[in-house]
């Protein structure tokens, strides 16, 4: 084991929706600067897992540690926890009644109590980084899907999170718009952001992931470096899944 800080530790996590056990005994660890990609068929629990990590879903069992601190959702200040853990959604969830710039400065101004001026300066820098500085004053409805998602990434980064979670960030995009979002995510990875990404983009996973986790029926069936998972999967189920999606 290296000495890098463990950013996320999940122990024996369980989650059920009614009678359906969505997560059965999940354990994982993500260290500082690592990129973990979760793959698996839909319904395997990938999204639920990352939604549990920033407490949009409440776990039914097990423990979650963020930066070494055990989080008890009943006692912890979840707002504080979520400030460290950014999230990007499949359907962007931009605020339609606010301009691009207002979307990005909302949380820094309201939560961090930054001045609008200071927040705007930082927001414009983030928008430049995702290539959308000239769109600062338009409303989200006039953006393409790829642009929306890049704004959503900038909005999340504005809170200076230590960890970023991506829930199928390119699944709702037209194929020709996927690349620009993946490029932004690659850039983040290069800068050393700790990330957990749920995606069906296998090429991206192979290129960017430090670890790939294959999830099946609420369990992490296989965990390893991408070349191992993609070239030499140990589990029959992993091989079947990859055969299906890589065709």
């Amino acid at each position: 084991m290296s000495e890098k800080q463990v950013m996320i530790r999940v122990q024996n996590l369980k989650k059920r929706f009614g009678n359906l056990e969505v997560l059965k005994d999940i354990s994982l660890e993500v260290k500082k600067g690592e990129v973990v990609v979760l793959i698996g068929a839909s319904g395997s629990g990938k999204s639920t897992l990352i939604r549990c990590i920033n407490f949009l879903e409440m776990k039914d069992g097990g423990e979650i540690f963020i930066e070494g601190e055990r989080i008890d959702p009943k006692k912890a200040n979840l707002c504080k926890v979520r400030q460290k853990v950014g999230m990007v959604f499949q359907h962007f969830n931009l605020f339609p009644h606010k301009t691009v710039l207002e979307n990005v400065i909302e949380a820094p101004v309201i939560v961090r109590k930054m001045s609008k001026q200071e927040a705007s300066r930082e927001a414009l820098e983030l928008l430049r980084k995702v290539g959308l500085e000239e769109k600062a004053n338009v409303y989200p409805s006039s953006l393409s899907g790829g642009q929306k998602q890049r704004v959503a990434i900038a909005r999340s980064l504005a809170m200076k999170p230590d960890i970023m979670l991506f829930d199928e960030p390119t699944s709702a995009l037209d194929p020709e718009l996927v690349g620009e979002v993946l490029e932004t995510m690659k850039q983040l990875a290069r800068e050393g952001m700790t990330m957990i990404i749920v995606t069906h983009e296998m090429g991206f996973a192979r290129e960017v992931a430090d670890w790939v986790a294959f999830m099946d029926q609420g369990r992490i069936l296989e965990w390893g470096p991408p070349q191992e998972i993609f070239n030499n999967p140990r589990e029959e189920r992993t091989r079947e899944f990859l055969n299906r999606v890589l065709k």
């Binding site: 707002c79 979520r82 853990v85 999230m87 939560v111 909005r155």
Partner: peptide, 10 residues
């Protein structure tokens, strides 16, 4: 919309 707000620490 609520989830996006919460995920930003609001």
């Amino acid at each position: 919309q609520m989830e996006a707000g919460l995920s930003l620490g609001m």
